[in-house]
């Protein structure tokens, strides 16, 4: 990194002695607030559960064993694969993936619309997107519940208009959870895509049109590759928090089925009080997310390499 080419050239070298002290606050912040807690979590996931919360400092794989191996209610049946927690993870990934897809389908056109308004109007549109964020997520989620309940405005309105004969039950269903995730995280999709589209050079689209590219081909071959970083950033920003969400499943889903977030929460706050298992579940979740991101980063850098070669 500190090759002769970089240190020898220009006035940039004058900053070099300051680099370490200037970066120190960032390193400290990451160290204290990210690395340390994660390390603590990793250690706790290998400790023994103390009855009713807390840990005993005996190292064991019990938490991971509980996650993956099913020994029956009494713990003396032949070991089999434990599907309970895998199913919870799968359901959460599925819900988060769907939420990401819906956010993309709605967020991309929205971002495109805002970015193609005259510069003087864009501020107002962005402002409108951010307004809901002035209100706490908990309150917005509860409000959504009020809107969609059996005798809420949505159902009553549709019945008054004659669209529905009887109220459609949304509250306490997976559909409501999906709606909650979509609604909560939509702006996280709109804003990065907007930032990418705003920088898009529309002369490229005109050039494509001049060369007889259809609108669809222009979108697929020109626009999406150029704004892809924004799309990817938006997808990550929606997918990752959706995966760990527990407000929407608790309030809109009726807390009937565990999602990853509520499963982990229950280990620390609820009656189950199993810290090592909560830590292990968190570690497994984090590993999954990191792997997915690394696979993406690798394919992205390969794609970038190909693009440069072309």
């Amino acid at each position: 990194m500190a090759g002769p080419g970089t240190s020898g050239g220009g006035g940039g070298g004058g900053w070099r002695p300051l680099l370490v002290p200037l970066l120190m606050p960032t390193w400290l912040t990451i160290g204290i607030f990210l690395v340390l807690p994660v390390a603590l979590m990793a250690v706790y996931s290998f400790l023994t559960k103390e009855f009713r919360g807390g840990v005993i400092w005996d190292f064991t794989l019990a938490a991971y064993d509980q996650f993956f191996v099913d020994r029956g209610l009494f713990g003396d049946e032949p070991p089999a694969i434990e599907w309970t927690y895998i199913a919870i993870f799968w359901r959460s990934i599925w819900q988060a993936g769907l939420a990401t897809l819906f956010c993309l389908l709605v967020g991309f056109p929205t971002a495109w619309f805002i970015a193609t308004r005259p510069a003087s109007q864009r501020g107002v549109w962005l402002f409108l997107i951010t307004i809901p964020y002035w209100v706490n997520l908990l309150i917005r989620t509860v409000s959504l519940k009020f809107l969609i309940r059996d005798n809420g405005p949505l159902n009553e309105g549709l019945m008054a208009l004659g669209v529905l004969d009887a109220p459609v039950t949304l509250v306490n269903t997976n559909l409501a959870v999906q709606l909650g995730l979509f609604y909560s995280y939509l702006p996280f999709m709109v804003l990065p895509i907007y930032a990418a589209v705003e920088r898009y050079n529309f002369a490229l689209s005109e050039a494509a049109a001049d060369l007889y590219a259809s609108r669809w081909v222009t979108l697929r071959e020109i626009v999406i590759p150029v704004v892809k970083p924004g799309i990817v950033a938006g997808c990550i920003l929606v997918f990752v928090p959706s995966l760990g969400a527990f407000l929407a499943p608790d309030l809109l889903g009726g807390a009937k089925t565990f999602m990853i977030g509520s499963l982990i929460e229950e280990q620390f706050k609820g009656s189950l009080g199993n810290w090592p298992f909560g830590a292990a579940a968190s570690m497994i979740l984090m590993t999954l997310v990191l792997c997915a991101l690394m696979v993406y980063a690798r394919s992205a850098s390969q794609a970038a390499g190909q693009g440069a070669a072309r």
Partner: peptide, 17 residues
């Protein structure tokens, strides 16, 4: 006691999974 409570914890987790 701890051993018995474990059974009830398992029933609860199974109920809410």
């Amino acid at each position: 006691d701890a051993e018995t409570q474990k059974l009830y914890d398992a029933i609860w987790t199974n109920l809410k999974k």
